[in-house]
Structure formats: C-alpha cells, structure tokens
Design a binder for these strands. Structure first.
Lengths: 207, 207, 207, 207
DNA sequence: AATGAATGAGGCTTCATTCAT
DNA sequence: AATGAATGAAGCCTCATTCAT
C-alpha cells in the first residue's frame, strides 16, 4: 500500500517519527553530539533502521530542515495572508514568529544548530543542502523584505533600505531570541514580541 | 622569567599562537571538524604540543572565548567611553560592533559556532564555561542595556522595556549580521551599520 | 509447469536473469563491492527477490561458477571434438579459449575475481564450492593435459612432463591474458592467440 | 632519532611489521576478508595503531605492493645481471621467479589477490595505485620483454612477437603457478620451473 | 618544552540475512 | 512469487587523551 512520493505508509510514518526524534535529540544535546545511534535509541529501534529510511545522515538533516521549514510556513503564512496592510503584516510577522518559536522551540534550536554546525564533506555550509523546491514558493511569502517593500510602496512606511532593514528585523525577531531562549528557557517570548511590535512600528511608520 | 598567571613568556606566546590558529581553523571548517590535530598542524607543531599547553580541549575552547571577548572589549569599550550622551553611545555601540565584526570575522564566526555547538561532556551549553572573572567587569560595559537605561534616565530615549529592547538590538547588531556574513561574505557591514543607526534612532528617541 | 530440478520455468528464468546480472555487476565493480542489493537493482527487483531465489549469497556464487563453466564447456568442447590430431586439438584449444575470453570477458573477469576473493565463512577457497557433478564430465574434456597425453601417445609431441606443461599452457592461454585484458581492455586477444599457437607448436612438436 | 623518509626508527619498524602481518593475513584469508582489525590483531596491537601508521587502508595496500615489488626486484634483478646471454637470462628469469615464488608464497598470493580485488572508491583497478617511482627503474629490469628483445637482436632467438611472447611467458611463469600453488600448496615449483626452462628454450631458440 | 606512539570510544556506512505480509 | 522492514555484525576512519622519552 503506497502513499505519495512512492512511499509506503509505514515508511512515511517512520520517517516522520525519526525526523521528530532527531529534532528533539539535536535540541537537547546539540547537533555535534546527536549521533545516528542516539537518534535511533530515542525512537527505540536499531541504528541501522535510521539508515534504512535515510540513505545517509545528510539526507536526514535535509529532512529535518524541510520538515521545520514546512511547519513554519504552514503556521505563519496563513496568518500573514489575513492581513491587508503592511503594518498589519509586519505586526503579524513578529507575533506569529514569536508564537511559533515558543511552540516549536526544539525545532528552532535544531535548525539553528544545524545552520551553524553543519558542513558537507567539502566543508561547505548548509545552504548547499537542497531545500525541497516546492517549499520555496511558500518560503518567499515568509520573507519580511516583501512586507517592507509593500509598506513603502503603499506609503505606510517611511524611507529606509529594505534589504538591510529586513536583516535587522530577522536578527531581532529570530536570531536574537533563539540565542536568548537557548541560554534562558524562561525568557518571556510573548512579552518580547509585543515590545518588538512597538519598536518596529516606531522605526518604520511614516511621519 | 615569568609573566602573570605563573606563565613564562614563551608559554604565553605559544598559548596565544595556538588560540589564534584554533580560531582560524574553526572559522574555516567549523567547530565540529576542528580537531586538535588540525589546529596543531596549522601552528606547525605536533598535536601533543597543543595538549601540553591546554590540559584539554575544553580549556582551549575557554581560552578562545576569553580571547575573543577580551579583544571585543578592548576594541569597543574605549570607543563607548568617548561618548557622553546615550544616543551617542548607542550609535557608537552599533558602529563599533560592525567594525569589529568586519575586522574579526573569523573570531566572531568561531565564537558563534562554539556557542551553538559546544557542549561539555554532560551536554551543558557553553555558558557553563567559566569566563575569566576579570573580563566580567569590562563585559558589563559592553552591555547595551546599560546604555538604554542611561538614555531613559536622562530623558533622551522614549519609554520602552530596557531588557527586551536590548535583546532586540543585540539581535539586529550581532546575531543577524553574523548569520548573514557567514552565508554571504560580501555582505556590506558598514552600510548595514549606518542603516541600523538610523533605525534604532527612530525607535528609541523621545518624541 | 516444471522444468528440471523441480523448478518452474519462471523460477529458472529468474535465476538465469539474476545470475547474468550478478556476473555483469561483478565484472564491473568487482566481487568485493558487488552486494546483493546492487545485483537486485541491476535486475530491477527488490533485494529480497534475489534471496528468494538463492538461499544465500554462497548459493548465488555457486550458480555463477556453474553458469560460467557450462558456457565455456558448451563453447569449447564441441570445437575440440571436431579435431582428430593432438596438434589440431591444441591449436583449437588455444584459439577457442581466446575467442571465448573475448566474447565472455565479463564472465571470465567475474569468475577470476571470485576465484581470488571468494572464501566461505571458514576462510576456505572457492574450489570448496561444490561444482555441479554433471559438469565434471564435460570439464574433463576441457583439460589440456588430456590433449598433451594423446599427442605423446600418438608420437605427435616430443617428450615433456604432461602435467607441468599443461599448467604452463593454462597460464599462458588463460591466466596471463585475463590479467592483461583486465588491465588493458584493448589487448588484441586474437593476435595473441595466433602467437601462442605458433609458440606452443614449436614447444611441443616432435623433432 | 630519525632514519630516512623523515621516519623514526620505531615508525619504520612498525610499518614493516604491519606490512608483513597484512601480507600474511591476506594470503591466509584473502584480501576481501583481511580487515584492518584482523591485521592489527595479528600484530598484537589496537586497530587504531595500524591507522596511526598508515593514514588509510589504501596507504597500507600501497605499502604492501611496494614492499613486494621491492623484494622481488632485489631478489631477481641481481641474478639476471650475472647472465650475459639472452638465453641465460631467460633461464634465470624463470628459475629465479620460481624460487622467489616458493620462498615468498604469501607475498605473491597477497599481491595477486589485491591485483584482482582491489578497487579504489571509484571502482578503478589497482594499477591506479601509485608505485614508488624509484621502484620503476628496477622494475623495468624485471621485464621479460627486454630479455626477448635482446635475444632477437643478438640472433639467439628465433622470430616471434616480443610483447605477445612476453605475456605468454609471464602467464606460464607467474600467473599460472600462482593459481596452482594457491589451490595446491604441494605443487612442486622447482620441477615446474625446470620444465618451463626446457619448454621456452624449445620455443624461442633459433633453428 | 616538545613530541611520537598508542589507544578506546565512538561516528557513519554497507551488508547479508530474517521475517511478516 | 515478491517485497518492505528491520537488524546485528562488521568495516573504515576520526578523535581526545595518556604516557614515556
């Protein structure tokens, strides 16, 4: 019996299960120490089972990344599309990211860790890992630069460099709190998000 | 002939040399693949020389962190102390950090990588690594929260939560561009810094 | 419907198909790397199909050997039987072997590779693999020693030790060119065979 | 304390010891099953010791090949150089090879096995393994084609194709008996060699 | 102060084989 | 007749660390 991708139902289930376990393990002990053996132990199967379902550790990492991106897109993009104004979208972008980060802490941590640690055999960084192309479409909709551009075109936002400001927002909305949360799990993400909404409203609104 | 810490000059020189080599290697191939042997090769000595000077890899990592922090403090704190106003200090904080990041890219990359990857044998994160206590003093002076607090007390800055805003600024000034620079070495840090100065001026100034 | 050995036609066909695929794969990547999975992929079936038809890898190897020997016997023995004189048989032995080697290069390569590489779990060499007894009869007819003996009895050949000379001829006719052909696929087997015919004629003829 | 090649005496001794053990193990159980672990066990050290002295299994294989070739050259070439006539050299070539094969059975077997079994990661055969260039000189002197050419030029030998006849001689002198000896360790190599001397004398001499 | 040698633990991966369907 | 899933054993290799010199 086969589902899509030419994969059995069992196969799909196992892959998901392993991917989730991998995320948990990486979040807990870090990518560097998250061996295939430990991931298998978390699932409760032999190590070779993991390699039966994922041809290599690289392929598992890729699955994790795709899984995480897909969930983020599924959680955040619909929220964004409820908003009409750029200001509303920016506000939602910040709040939805914070909410997602709070509810998917381990996933975020795992992806960030992979992002810093993972290198191919050649030593290249992770963006060489091919992201599932169909994700790319949704991915673009997650891009805050698009929101900023819309806001400038509509006259809602004041004058600033879109790309650079987008980097700044990503830094404040994503990269900063990730670190914070890793070091201090008590960090109040929702309060932080509200502060950010106000901050970037002051920083972007016209007049 | 002995310098401080009961270390001879030679000893101190070798330690610095090894620390630098380690930083370069980590920045180049990532912490995960930066073995003691490769670091030793970069210096041009036998692997055991590294372990002669650093009792364990943990101790070397600690030295790297202290080295990096010390250089950052030495580079940025004096700049900050030239400024009187909180707005001036915030501006300088942003610009000096950007300049330091540009001139110490490998160091930054190495520290970030360690920050995400490094765990003690127990699985604890890197902040469990004891930071040289004498650094702590200077370290506090690097804290942007202090600047923000001063600005609110002096009435230069508008009303916002100091700690949260500090996290946001660190995210935009440090965490964000680090990622950006690692993935795209051409990223224009100076232009980015100028944009940030304007952005956070709009976001923090009273009125 | 059953053919001999209590095997259905389908069964026999699959076995032949798998045996052939195995030969090709072994010739291509070597016995050491020719895993059951790769052989199954060549056939286009699941790995377990191979083990459904051959109880173990040992059994598959045995089938390969028998298959190869049978083909060699079928190709060469009839040629030999057309000849009456020992000299004619020797000549034919050399030419037919060369022709067979040229047209069954992969098979030869596979069998040679197995001959050197294959050991049972106990470490024993391949001749411990039971050769299909019915092959033995034909096999004897392939033996050059028989030809030499006939030639000495008939007075065609001069005086030499039969067994030793047979080993020499096999070395020059089979073992040598196999190596040569593996390392240099352009090697002109037919020209070589003609040279051998002349050489062993000079070496064996009376007077 | 260092000997040539920038290697310690201990290092050189260990390398030799490991190379010898590897040859024995390969001859005994075949290259395919001769794992680094088993070789280490034969020496009586930990597996990682082997990899401390040889960066990879490839490097060990290369050392084995070079070792075997060097010994063959050292044993046979001086014998050849004592002879003046081509016929004498051919006779010596055959006898010296047989003697060497008898006294270095395991080495021969190991090299042959590697020759058939060894593939690089790309699947290429062993001649891609770089042979120590300084060996090449002596190696050429081992080539029977050179002897045949000399014999034709001097008029000792009759007319035949040099390259093809050389292949035939190698087949009868080396490849054939190797197989024979592997399958039947009692095979009388010296008797065989004498037969070969006579055989190839008949086959090559003028008139 | 430096270093060569050795080692055990662990990492990823391949493989033949078993079993339920 | 075929196959997907699972698995343990083994393979090569990297690494931090210890020790004698």
């Amino acid at each position: 019996m086969r589902s899509n991708d030419g994969r059995t139902f069992t196969e799909t289930a196992r892959r998901t299960q392993i991917t989730q376990a991998a995320i948990d393990v990486i979040a807990e002990i870090g990518y560097a120490k998250a061996s295939i053996r430990k991931i298998a132990e978390r699932v409760g199967v032999a190590m070779s089972v993991v390699l039966y379902h994922f041809a290599s550790k690289d392929e598992l990492v890729q699955a994790i990344i795709n899984h995480a991106y897909r969930e983020a897109i599924d959680a955040i993009v619909p929220e964004l599309e409820l908003e009409r104004t750029a200001a509303g979208k920016l506000r939602t972008y910040i709040l939805a990211n914070a909410f997602f980060l709070r509810t998917h802490r381990t996933q975020y941590a795992a992806v960030m860790d992979i992002g810093m640690s993972y290198r191919t055999a050649d030593g290249d960084l992770v963006n060489s890992l091919s992201i599932d192309p169909e994700l790319m479409a949704g991915f673009t909709k997650l891009d805050v630069a698009t929101i900023l551009r819309q806001g400038q075109e509509s006259g809602e936002f004041c004058d600033f460099d879109v790309e650079r400001t987008a980097t700044a927002i990503r830094g404040a909305v994503i990269n900063g709190p990730i670190m914070e949360v890793m070091l201090n799990p008590e960090f109040d993400l929702d309060g932080y998000a509200e502060e950010l909404v106000a901050l970037f409203d002051r920083a972007t609104r016209r007049g």
